[in-house]
Design a binder for these strands. Structure first.
Lengths: 124, 124, 124, 124
DNA sequence: GTGGTCTAGACCACG
DNA sequence: GTGGTCTAGACCACG
């Protein structure tokens, strides 16, 4: 399992971990039932604090991607990937619609909006 | 006060009314204290049901744009337009960041995203 | 789920519904994730119009007590009851302070104020 | 014009000033057109800072009780006392109703509520 | 089945 | 006259 931590970004480390593990689950690299590294192992590998990894694993568990049992470790949950994708798409469209509605209300042109999108795309 | 209702759009009538009145307040065409048409008057003018106009006025009141009193009518509130704009900008950026994060997670390229933005821009 | 509509009160039907569902959530009778009746079902049971139930559900959703999805129905939200209680207490104290300030300004005695409180207590 | 500042209370000094001047206007001790002391004079008399008095006068002006003209001073406005009283009564009833509604929702008894009212009455 | 929008009225309290 | 509540439907998209 390869995770890359970047410090050039404003995104917190635990979110970088979360996002990359989510990706691996969603694209099938990690399958339901697969073990993922223990918090301590991953923390050592990435040279980050255990607390940071813990926060990421907690978020993943809360969102149903992994299950963590004291003494056993963490495992990929059985999830319906299509359902997750669908929910994400719906959420994404919600966000974009709200964003564009406000932008229009503020009198921003399509060009302004696209510039803004490009700028944010580079940042996040 | 000129409001245009379009049926070519999926945006509900009450939202079309809300957005247009908000715009008139934000761009200064309607000033604090100005009366806006009574629900019944506007309903007749626009040839829509009073209930539909009421829904719009309720939203405007809840968001602090107008004040409505039984027996008197509805009036533009004293609002800090800069503050409102700032809040909207913050909300807008929140939405765009979340949207792009999910889009990236879904593996969409900047081009895909811009196409999506253009499409939504035309619709809403 | 037992809701009682009274016509002896000036409180609108939709508020009576809202208050009773809020109570059931706050006192734990309804738990996070629990389904609440569909608008049509509740309307039939209470012999009121669907629109009236809808107004109540909209208020509950706006205040974060329930979540409503087209095609699925309405469900009790995950809320921090202690936080809600705290917020309510803060709001309550705000109201009572403002109320007593004005009462004092109007020269009302503590006895007058208590009588007023008793009267309102019986009504609402 | 006699104003008393107390430091036993949590009410800010400028509010103490505001409330007392409002009272004098509402009970007729100060009549429309009457001059009220200049900010500097009142500040000296009460041994408080001019800024404190200024804040009070600003609130009084915003609420229509006095008019302040640079170079001339401050004067009691022409106000409709009955209208003001009525508005205050309405506001007061609004506050008490909201307060009691929340208190009931929280399961507080009439006795609890009266105790709370007594406590707040002593404080403010 | 679910909720979301909308209609065309009614009756009410308040001004 | 004003807005507030309520009815008893309609039609829609979505599941």
């Amino acid at each position: 399992m390869k995770i890359v931590i970047s410090s050039n970004t404003s995104k917190p480390i635990y979110e970088q971990i979360t996002v990359q593990i989510k990706s691996m689950i969603m694209n099938g690299y990690l399958q339901a039932g697969d073990a993922i590294p223990s918090m301590r192992t991953l923390a050592k590998t990435l040279r980050v604090s255990v607390t940071t990894v813990k926060k990421s694993y907690e978020d993943l568990q809360r969102d149903g991607f992994i299950e963590t049992t004291v003494g056993r470790g963490s495992f990929v949950s059985v999830i319906n990937k299509d359902l997750v994708k669908e929910e994400q798409n719906k959420a994404m469209e919600d966000y974009i619609v709200k964003f564009i509605e406000i932008a229009k209300l503020n009198g921003e042109s399509l060009e302004d909006i696209i510039d803004l999108v490009k700028a944010i795309y580079m940042e996040v």
